[in-house]
Nucleic acid binder design. Structure first.
Lengths: 143, 143
DNA sequence: GATGAAACACTGTGATT
DNA sequence: AATCACAGTGTTTCATC
């Protein structure tokens, strides 16, 4: 990973569909050399995957929140993890140190569906004994 | 946004460098039709941008944490926002409702640099009166 | 949306440093 | 090992229907 790789990564972060020939024009490297570097960044694991960042608001998801969760029981935790990972509303799920066990980042259409998510998906079906929801008013930076 | 657009989005989320001709083979649509749909998904704002998901661990960033922040003063808040957005360690910054003012998602090489970040970038230079750091032990889901 | 032609980009090879 | 140039192949774009 040298400075050239860094520049390539920065360009791909801005637009992952940028072609090798476009990149080769700004970094003064031949097209095969650029393509080869991108392949190596991917196979070495520096690049996890090429993806697309969707706009939540355009998709009607106006409610963004973080939910801290306390969960009890081994079997219940396993069920919880499966359900959570499958849920389309859960963007992220982290196992945390400290007061709570898990931290979820959820994106939903509105507060009604958030309430429904907390009562039905979280509190009802699993041994979630406590939650703490932090609403996001606005986002200044997102990767 | 019909079902075909949905399928295209799903494919691009898996691999944003997938070519229109590859996509056209699985959804039975001509190449120009696929390219046109992708352009429209982008210009309509459904697609925010094509990007690349990097592997934090491969890049030596072994410490992931969320930091809640309380900040006082108008001028200080402005400075804080500028500094935070510029910081390479800050992946996300959200304005939150409730007990704290901001929530940062930070990725750093180790705990030492996290301590340095909190004391130098956060507490020293700005009127950050209180912070609360939540460590991430592991990540189950990330978009 | 589809088709076909022209423009463009990618891959593989061999040669170079 | 990394890079380049070239040729062959595949992909995109732009017109037209």
């Amino acid at each position: 990973m040298d400075a050239t790789d860094q520049r390539i990564l920065e360009m791909l972060q801005q637009n992952s569909r940028m072609t090798s020939s476009e990149i080769s024009k700004t970094i003064h490297l031949s097209v095969p050399a650029v393509a080869e570097r991108i392949r190596k960044l991917e196979s070495s694991g520096v690049i996890d995957r090429f993806t697309v960042k969707l706009n939540r608001h355009t998709l009607g998801q106006h409610c963004l929140a973080y939910i801290f969760v306390v969960i009890q029981g081994n079997e219940e935790t396993h069920q919880f993890r499966t359900k959570i990972i499958e849920s389309e509303y859960v963007l992220e799920c982290h196992h945390t140190a400290g007061e709570y066990d898990y931290l979820l980042k959820v994106s939903l259409p509105d507060i009604q569906s958030l309430e429904q998510f907390i009562t039905e998906t979280l509190k009802n079906k699993h041994s979630v004994t406590r939650t703490n929801t932090v609403f996001i008013l606005s986002t200044l930076k997102d990767e």
